[in-house]
């Protein structure tokens, strides 16, 4: 019991913060505690959430991915371009864009693994490449799509107030949870994050896993770009600037240790919801401004990083 508690207490801390924040917002702002508004937290943050799900794999393996914001922008532009100028149907365009994203991520993972380069630098190059490509695609940097019938019909799908982007996000969380918990791949992700040379000596497939991790991260970001097109009705080359920071923050607030090896995608879901509530509050409270959300996210990040530090010291003291 205590062992389970000790292992899960960062997650419990995150859950506690989420509950307190949600309760406080519901008490302060009438109308906040409705299913409609709850669903909106998922809709408005589906792109961030998808990127954060992918980032969870990367951080669990001890890496970092700075390219996700740029990949989101690139995916939204390529999808819009294929459908509008290429005349592709959405059923052909979406798989093509997803494949492109996964391939880009797999390339970054392969370079990181084969040449033993810092993920920080390789994904930085990926960020420059993807952002540059997105901006170079068309001269006006933005492709309006809202008049397309296919996009229109998809954006109006609603189940119990949850729209399609929200459902894609929740499905990704469920898939990622199952993959991390029940598959050989998932266990290898944790093993690489805990101790890579030990993982390799045990004969675990570190190469294919590392490539898979970065492919998943880029795939999730690509899905984020696609749902962004469905949600906003446009491809936008300057979308998701600095979104990688929020994604990393959501993962860390969700209790995943940045050094790798410990954490969960359920924590990331809670982390995304915490960020979602903090971002939503200024629209309810007239005098609060959006810059307070950045400061609040920074402070939360600080608190959780300090807590992680304390728990590491505590664990080290116990053994």
């Amino acid at each position: 019991m205590t062992a389970a508690l000790r292992r899960n207490w960062p997650l419990l801390g995150t859950a506690l913060v989420l509950v307190v924040l949600y309760a406080a917002a519901s008490l302060a702002f009438p109308g906040f505690a409705s299913l409609y508004q709850f669903a909106h937290l998922f809709d408005d943050n589906a792109t961030l959430g998808l990127a954060a799900v992918g980032m969870t794999f990367v951080i669990l393996s001890g890496g970092i991915d700075l390219s996700v914001g740029a990949v989101i922008a690139l995916a939204s532009m390529v999808l819009a371009l294929l459908m509008k100028d290429g005349g592709w149907s959405i059923w052909a365009a979406v798989p093509a864009v997803l494949a492109m994203g996964a391939a880009l991520g797999a390339c970054m993972g392969a370079i990181i693994h084969v040449f033993r380069l810092p993920p920080f630098l390789v994904t930085l190059a990926g960020m420059f490449l993807a952002r540059g490509a997105a901006l170079l695609l068309t001269p006006d940097k933005r492709i309006e799509m809202s008049s397309k019938a296919e996009i229109e019909s998809l954006s109006s799908v609603l189940i119990q107030n949850f729209n399609l982007p929200a459902m894609v996000f929740l499905a990704a969380v469920a898939l990622a949870w199952a993959a991390l918990r029940f598959t050989r791949f998932g266990r290898t992700v944790y093993a690489i994050g805990s101790d890579e040379s030990a993982a390799r000596l045990m004969g675990l497939p570190t190469a294919s896993t590392r490539i898979g991790i970065y492919a998943i991260s880029a795939l999730c970001a690509t899905a984020g770009g696609i749902v962004q097109v469905i949600g906003t009705g446009a491809g936008d080359a300057s979308a998701a600037l600095l979104l990688e920071l929020d994604a990393i923050a959501a993962v860390v607030i969700g209790g995943t240790v940045l050094a790798g090896g410990r954490g969960s995608v359920i924590g990331t879901l809670l982390g995304v919801l915490i960020l979602a509530i903090i971002t939503a509050i200024p629209s309810y409270h007239g005098t609060l401004n959006s810059w307070w959300t950045k400061i609040a996210i920074g402070l939360l990040l600080l608190v959780f990083v300090l807590l992680q530090r304390l728990s590491q010291r505590w664990a080290a003291g116990k053994t």
């Binding site: 959006s290 920074g298 990040l301």
Partner: peptide
């Protein structure tokens, strides 16, 4: 350091806007 300075990277622009 990468995490410690990430905090100000996130919050710093908020402070500047404040």
């Amino acid at each position: 350091p990468i995490i410690a300075t990430l905090i100000l990277m996130v919050a710093g622009r908020g402070v500047a806007q404040l």
